[in-house]
């Protein structure tokens, strides 16, 4: 037992990935199942605000792009559920827990997409923030999670670029279109910053996750990176950042930004966001509505198998 713990800690120390059949502390396994499960759920729920605009995309091109992006999100969820299953988690059980409100997903998806510009903002800002987070996770200590992240990051780059391009088109359009773009930035800027989670001095689980190298950078480090990446992009679009305290610090080379509204953050996490109920309801409806398909496919598979066995006997 102590021997196993020793080899586990040695592996973490030497940056050797932990693989499914390796011994690992129960708390490490639990933390990963929770984190990967939440991540997978975020991909699934993340399809909803964008799916809202598939039938109303402004052109056939944008519609095709949005469909491809939403399909990617479904794929990302599937990679992640598979990774969680290598730890002994059960996929159906995770879905039940999501619907019962016993597992979380990224709070960003509890905000509505009021205009087409919001869809562009999600691709650019929300996927942009996700990329910062996920690039860091490509070196996470658990092998299957790291490998899923590598795949996801490759695909995510298209998401961010298409969002920025759609935003650019609005920003360079009529004054009304530019205003739409600005409104979307105003709505999504702060929620995007909140995606990195609570500040470091208020994030009790972070230290252990850093020690296990599940997390490689702190919430605040990643948030700072996102701000530094993104502010110049906002300015290049001719738009402004809805933060009166934002300023560039010449000495540090970083942007300093205002205080996040943590009350709003914790409210949304606690289920009091604008769309929490709607999102879970949509998932419940899809899960229950799809039950007959899952069951029928299983019965069909069983019949085929029986037939094949009978043919072999005959």
């Amino acid at each position: 037992m102590t021997n196993q713990l020793h080899s586990f800690e040695q592996a973490i120390e030497k940056d050797i990935s932990i693989e499914p059949k390796n011994w690992m502390p129960e708390a490490y396994r639990k933390t990963l199942i929770r984190q990967i499960g939440q991540h997978a759920h975020s991909e699934v729920v993340g399809m909803l605000p964008e799916g809202n605009w598939i039938t109303r995309a402004p052109s056939l091109k944008r519609k095709a792009v949005l469909l491809a992006k939403v399909q990617d999100e479904a794929g990302h969820a599937l990679y992640l559920y598979s990774a969680a299953e290598t730890l002994g988690a059960d996929r159906d059980d995770m879905m039940d827990k999501l619907i019962a409100g016993r597992m979380k997903y990224s709070s960003i998806f509890n905000y509505p997409t009021l205009s087409w510009a919001d869809v562009a903002a999600i691709g650019w800002l929300v996927d942009g923030a996700a990329i910062v987070n996920q690039v860091a996770l490509c070196r996470t200590s658990y092998g299957p999670y790291a490998r899923a992240m590598v795949r996801i990051c490759k695909e995510e780059s298209f998401h961010q670029r298409q969002g920025f391009e759609a935003m650019m088109q609005l920003a360079n359009g009529t004054p009304e279109q530019k205003q739409m773009a600005q409104d979307a930035v105003n709505r999504f800027w702060w929620p995007a910053l909140m995606m990195f989670g609570p500040s470091d001095d208020n994030s009790p689980n972070s230290a252990q996750s850093m020690a296990w190298k599940i997390k490689r950078f702190s919430n605040d480090e990643l948030r700072q990176k996102f701000v530094d990446n993104t502010v110049p992009q906002v300015l290049q679009l001719g738009l402004s950042v809805p933060d009166p305290d934002l300023r560039f610090n010449q000495d540090t080379g970083h942007y300093e930004f205002g205080e996040i509204n943590w009350t709003e953050f914790f409210d949304v996490i606690a289920g009091k966001g604008p769309c929490n109920h709607e999102r879970i309801e949509a998932r419940r409806k899809a899960w229950e509505g799809g039950k007959w398909v899952r069951d029928t496919a299983a019965v069909y598979a069983q019949k085929q198998q029986t037939q094949q066995q009978q043919q072999k006997v005959a």
Binding site: L78, Y79, S82, E85, T86, R91, R147, A148, R151, R294, A297, A298, Y300, A301, Q304, Q305
Partner: peptide, 8 residues
């Protein structure tokens, strides 16, 4: 490349 679930 990874895994998935399927009925058959």
């Amino acid at each position: 490349v990874g895994s998935l679930r399927a009925s058959d």
